[in-house]
């Protein structure tokens, strides 16, 4: 193969094609940019935040419930987004809360992906009784609203980061299992899998080296949508007082804290954490939307 041929192959590498197709939509690019910014802000929260909102030494009760733009009593700090009842800078609290929300959402999604994908691969490749049983369980699970599954589990286990992650995994694994299984069933009948079998490769190698990579594109779409769903669900549960404890204030808890002050017109305690949550979910949904169009050529033509 000449160098020019190789370059031609590289130009048509699926990854490049995908990137080109993704960049087709300016809205989707904006969503990706926003997502990168949000994740960066979540990671860098301790360095970006004007104060450590959970270091009691840095808080001043006299600065409580100040509207956005106020200056602290000692004149050192400007509260761009106001303060809560404890005199906590809302901007700092939101950055820290974003961090918790993103970590919980991503961790839950990765775990659910791992569990659902493995079960779905086995069911799709081998079929048989395990497949039938798994699909029954998936049907029942998906027929039941995720918020109820999670609420019951949290009522069972109590609060905590690990517990809410378990609850989220339990209410979301079925989406991955079903998607993986349906793709794996189609892929398992294709010629390259048969060729791999004829070559005498081990089943483990066929399933994880050959079958798995070809099942990934639709799973990426589901995962992108489910991260958003996981973050929203965690926020909802924490808002209801069932999710994270007060010591791990995610965005949902921050919004809940501001609820009682809403009636007296102190809107900022609930408004800004909610906007941060909205932007995060919006960025994720924009990216997932475009991924679905890019990775599903059948849909793109219509």
């Amino acid at each position: 193969m000449s160098a020019a041929d190789q370059a031609a192959v590289m130009r048509d590498h699926p990854l490049r094609r995908w990137i080109r197709a993704y960049a087709d939509s300016r809205l989707a690019l904006a969503g990706l940019g926003l997502l990168v910014l949000i994740v960066a802000a979540a990671i860098a929260a301790p360095w970006l935040a004007p104060q450590n909102p959970y270091d009691l030494m840095q808080l001043d009760m006299l600065d409580g419930r100040l509207p956005p733009g106020s200056v602290s009593g000692d004149g050192e700090l400007r509260y761009l987004l106001g303060t809560d009842a404890q005199g906590r800078d809302m901007l700092s609290a939101i950055l820290y809360g974003l961090r918790i929300s993103v970590v919980v959402g991503v961790a839950a999604t990765l775990l659910a992906l791992l569990v659902g994908m493995t079960l779905g691969l086995v069911a799709g490749y081998f079929g048989g009784r395990f497949d039938a049983l798994l699909m029954r369980v998936v049907d029942i699970q998906l027929a039941f609203p995720s918020i109820l599954t999670a609420m019951i589990l949290l009522a069972l286990f109590g609060q905590g980061i690990d517990k809410i992650i378990i609850a989220l995994v339990a209410s979301q694994w079925a989406y991955y299992a079903r998607t993986t299984r349906s793709v794996a069933m189609v892929e398992a009948d294709k010629a390259y899998i048969e060729a791999a079998r004829l070559l005498g490769l081990s089943t483990l190698r066929i399933v994880f080296r050959h079958l798995l990579p070809n099942c990934l594109p639709p799973l990426m779409v589901v995962a992108a949508l489910q991260v958003a769903a996981a973050i929203a669900l965690e926020a909802t549960l924490s808002f209801l007082g069932l999710g994270l404890p007060v010591t791990e204030p995610s965005l949902g808890l921050l919004i809940a804290n501001g609820f009682q002050y809403l009636y007296s017109g102190r809107y900022w305690i609930s408004l800004f954490p909610g906007l941060a949550l909205l932007l995060t979910l919006l960025a994720l949904n924009l990216v997932a939307d475009q991924l679905r169009d890019v990775l599903n050529p059948r849909l793109r033509k219509s």
């Binding site: 926020a235 808002f239 919004i255 809403l262 809107y267 609930s270 408004l271 909610g274 979910l281 919006l282």
Partner: peptide, 20 residues
């Protein structure tokens, strides 16, 4: 675009904003 925003709106927060 509105429907994408609608998908992303956290229901409980919208409730608070409606009250506000």
């Amino acid at each position: 675009a509105g429907s994408i925003v609608g998908f992303s709106l956290p229901t409980f927060w919208v409730g608070l904003m409606l009250i506000m």
